[in-house]
Design a binder for these strands. Structure first.
Lengths: 167, 167
DNA sequence: ATAAATAAAGATTTAAAACTCTTTTTATTG
DNA sequence: CAATAAAAAGAGTTTTAAATCTTTATTTAT
């Protein structure tokens, strides 16, 4: 029997993986958090504020889940908020300078940086799994991007139409 | 308030992410499957067979979960098996030539290849999220490695002591 | 002072991945 | 042919991430 059988790939996957697209590098919370930060950097400046409703509508992400995440971002100073009528979320002077990796640490913690792609606990450069170096290269490239890019840089990209936060 | 608060990183993470290390690029099943395939390629040849017990002990992986996975690998022809006393799993002539990406498709399906790192559904090169190109580079490098490397190549690495399947 | 609008907080639920347990089937050996 | 050893199959449980719901606190405006 060849590596390709008559059953579909998804059939097989379902046996121990209900939905494949959850096998991602970062949590969903990180994606929501980053998009929210960039959205606030763009729309929550010059005295304007972004309500949770506006943000979750514009980004197409779950209202209450985003609420939790934005609350946490405020706690970490990524941007600010104020309660009450005409309240909402808004950028502070540091918002555009925040590095993406700061947001990653808030949502996903530090363990992201030294996991083994094959799930071997004590895998490291000196005692590597067979994919350690390939995966380290891949991840380090991504981490590098997250380390040099800021919320402000992404906001500029989005404002100039080079990239998009939704749809 | 700065981006670094007095609470620990893990405190924050726990609020919507019980354990950060599950935010991985591939499923655990893939790691187990790949390690099992390489183990069988090494120890299940020249008439020798590998029992599920031996494999789960040697790899330090859950017995029954590995059973499911190996069963699926057999179904896809990655290696063979035989039931009964002195039965077990063993390499076939194609085992060393199997590409790692074949195993990835079995365990994680095809959706792994076009997810957006930020969770935007319609993200692609023409309508990219702000991290699309960085993530595409990162992932493509990894996919490239999985596309050119075979079970046999990893088996040689492990047999020569260059890399390890457990601990 | 009251009402309304909003974020914050916390409790709960849902969905998926990860893992376990039980039963069945197949092969071997005495 | 009976007993046994092994994989195959399937049902069930647990854990985690994701999402939702409910209540509280804060601010503003009337």
């Amino acid at each position: 029997m060849s590596a390709v059988s008559s059953r579909t790939d998804s059939d097989h996957r379902m046996e121990y993986c209900g939905r494949a697209y959850l096998c991602r590098m970062f949590s969903k919370a990180f994606g929501y958090a980053l998009r929210a930060a960039v959205y606030v950097a763009i729309h929550g400046k010059d005295g304007k504020k972004v309500s949770l409703q506006e943000a979750s509508d514009a980004l197409g992400v779950p209202h209450h889940f985003l609420g939790k995440i934005m609350q946490d971002l405020v706690k970490h100073g990524i941007f600010d908020s104020i309660k009450g009528p005409n309240g909402g979320f808004y950028a502070n002077s540091g918002t555009p300078q925040m590095f993406l990796i700061d947001i990653l640490k808030i949502t996903d913690g530090n363990l992201v940086f030294d996991q083994c792609a094959l799930g071997i606990r004590r895998c490291n450069a000196a005692h590597p799994c067979p994919l350690h170096h390939d995966f380290a290269n891949c991840r380090d490239g991504m981490i590098q991007a997250l380390t040099v890019k800021t919320v402000g840089i992404l906001a500029e990209d989005v404002e100039s139409g080079m990239s998009f936060l939704a749809r």
